[in-house]
Design a binder for these strands. Structure first.
Lengths: 167, 167
DNA sequence: ACTATACCCATAAAATCCCGTAAAATCCCC
DNA sequence: GGGGATTTTACGGGATTTTATGGGTATAGT
């Protein structure tokens, strides 16, 4: 059972001038265990306006899930489009490696799609974690079950640190 | 289950004047592991208007998949034409070798069928990856579940690099 | 000889690694 | 439980390595 990893908690991290971002320490431990090494898989979220991250092993899990669906379908004589399922899951996913201090470079495409700029809010949601622009998360009309008070708290704290110097 | 190889992520690569194309680095690693050497299997996609690529070892997996379909059909008392399935999967496949810097020559017939011209969008969908003409992908009415925002971003980036010099 | 292909080198840009520092968290001893 | 010492963390800034891509040269097939 690879997936005994539960991501939880939240924190804010800042993108530096080189486009680097460091994974908060409390997520890092799980991440290292679930990849073998320091790899972070990052992609766009299917529904929400944010990015999703997790360790390598989850990718393997996703492959076997698709395989099981396919086998179940053909056993029933139905058809199952593996490529469509794979495209949905894998096409936006990038394997990024982070250094010993937990930093990785955020690819510009993902940065743009995730609306990330300056401060990034990481927050664990179980098997994965999300990367939000804190303001986007506060403003979203989607049903994202998150305690806004927490987000506001993080935002206030980060604000006074960098003086709102959203580069 | 050989497939510990999950292709994911997307990138654009340009066909040069000699018809060469380089496999993006993040796909190359898997490719080298799954072939033993620098071999790329490339063919046309069964349903979509693009090409598919993968490493050598996937060919064996495809055989066993056909076998499974056959068994499932028999179990339901239906017939299954293995030769037709094989033809569909294998007849367009070519084994190409790429050099140390990841470049291979795109055979003209595949180039034509894939509508490839100038910039090629690679994108991993799990067990395989696809090669699209980015514009074709954006315009397609087929249900290809990819994040269009990513495609648009890549296209924009490639456009300003080569100045739209679609040779 | 002409063409197509494989192989080699060059270069600019990008990613990766490594080191230093300062703030924050943790520990520890009284 | 307070206060200083040690460790961890966040982040800036280079230096090295990898990658993408242009272009040249040799080799083989017709």
């Amino acid at each position: 059972m690879s997936g005994a990893f539960a991501y939880s908690g939240s924190a804010i991290s800042a993108i530096d001038d080189k486009g680097r971002l460091s994974v908060p320490a409390f997520l890092r431990k799980n991440l290292v265990d679930s990849s073998d090494g320091r790899t972070l898989c990052l992609g766009t979220h299917e529904k929400w306006d944010c990015l999703v991250g997790f360790g390598l092993s989850r990718k393997a899990d996703m492959l076997t899930e698709i395989d099981k669906q396919w086998e179940a379908a053909i056993a029933r004589g139905e058809s199952f489009d593996k490529d469509a399922a794979g495209a949905r899951k894998f096409s936006s996913l990038q394997d990024l490696s982070f250094d010993a201090s937990g930093r990785f470079i955020l690819p510009p495409q993902l940065r743009e799609i995730g609306n990330l700029d300056g401060n990034v809010l990481f927050h664990g949601i179980g098997t994965t974690f999300c990367l939000w622009n804190p303001q986007t998360l506060l403003d979203t009309t989607d049903d994202v079950p998150v305690d806004r008070r927490l987000v506001e708290h993080h935002l206030k704290e980060a604000g006074q640190k960098s003086g709102g110097k959203q580069k």
